[in-house]
Design a protein around this nucleic acid. Structure first.
Length: 212
DNA sequence: CGTTCGATGCACT
DNA sequence: GTGCATCGAACGT
């Protein structure tokens, strides 16, 4: 359908890649079916000097993909239960990546619901891919997808020519260090964000509430 | 409305 | 043995 982003797209400064990934479409064509969503929230992690980047303590077995060629997926498990997916950026040797934090579901909604059903009741569309752990669950992304080529056939990001969203930047979420860097980039006001951006809240939860 | 807290596995020291 | 780039249920106000 769209144009799959080539490795050269990722071989650039991480903040620029992060900005341009918002509005692109992440697709997982799995044996169980295809699921896809527009990227609405990302975070940049760049270099050993970034204290929140997994490369902050130098090269290890886990963070090895960060040092590898751009355009591969870096998937890891955190808190024992959640898979988080990144796109590796910058030229090979420079450890950096963009974390995908939220999607607006576009295709494969029933499949997403099935995959997320294990963790709860029937979810509204807005909750399916809200948060980095939730979206990997909905798309069926696990450690099996670590190091896969994001320009490949099964897991890829494509440009469908969707209108570029208005962007809003804020500090990264959940990090204990490096919170001063405003490296979280969101589609402003999008209802699928993991958390609203400061000063840019989504529509009110009770639009026309009559106060009891 | 807000905050706390338990689940759970992998890689690291 | 420790520490997470989280999630959501269970509380308290």
């Amino acid at each position: 359908m769209g144009a799959v982003l080539p490795p050269a797209f990722y071989a650039r400064p991480t903040l620029q890649v992060a900005r341009e990934l918002v509005g692109k479409v992440l697709v997982h064509a799995a044996p169980a079916g295809t699921a896809a969503g527009m990227i609405v929230e990302v975070e940049a992690y760049s270099g050993e000097s970034d204290p929140a980047c997994h490369a902050a303590t130098g090269f290890t077995r886990r963070n090895a993909p960060l040092y590898g060629p751009p355009g591969l997926a870096y998937v890891y498990v955190n808190y024992g239960l959640h898979h988080l997916v990144n796109a590796v950026t910058e030229p090979e040797g420079a450890p950096a990546a963009v974390l995908i934090r939220a999607l607006e579901p576009l295709a494969g909604l029933p499949l997403m619901r099935n995959r997320r059903a294990a963790a709860g009741r029937a979810l509204p569309a807005a909750a399916l891919c809200r948060g980095p752990g939730n979206l990997t669950s909905a798309l069926g992304i696990t450690l099996e997808q670590n190091r896969v080529d994001l320009s490949g056939e099964r897991l890829f990001i494509e440009d469908r020519g969707l209108p570029p969203p208005r962007l809003a930047w804020s500090p990264r979420i959940g990090v204990s260090v490096g919170a001063d860097r405003p490296w979280r980039c969101c589609a402003a006001g999008n209802p699928h964000l993991s958390k609203p951006v400061w000063g840019c809240a989504p529509s009110p939860r009770r639009p026309l509430a009559g106060t009891p």
